[in-house]
Amino acid sequence: MKHTLSVLVENKPGVLARVAGLFSRRGFNIDSLAVGVTEKPEISRMTVVVDVEEHSLEQVYKQLNKLINVIKVIDLPDANSVQRELVLVKVKAEPRNRAEIIEIVEIFRGKIVDVGKGTLSVEVTGPGSKLSAFEELLRPYGVEELVRTGTIALPRG
């Protein structure tokens, strides 16, 4: 099962290594991990998507809380949170299917951010599942390069 954890940490050197090390050491699989500053400069937020069973999730949660630099760990169930991710895709675009691709991008409320010789670079944001669907639709045209930021999330309300 996938779970999104929001981990508030002290913005200090080495914190990322402590968090990442904990996951690998205890055998928890990370799907994605995104780190960034928060409204308070001394605090960073790590958004971690883990793929674990309920029992292991509890261990992840407790072990994270044991790290001295971790201030708070919040489990963010899909229903109670806003989750976003950004994908950048460079897709092959022959003149004959350019219009088709642009149409798909528009449906996904994406943006063309770069136009190259025979390629289009596209940006889309949304929940991870939406980005995956988008990826699938572009694949037949030939995806040259792709990068995703990993999920970031905030609790609703």
């Binding site: 050197p13 080495g14 402590r18 090390g21 001295i68």
Partner: peptide, 16 residues
């Protein structure tokens, strides 16, 4: 040292 000992400490400090 802080890297090597990371998994075997309760906490560590590299004083700058």
């Amino acid at each position: 040292t802080t890297g090597i000992t990371l998994p075997i400490v309760k906490h560590s400090f590299l004083v700058k």
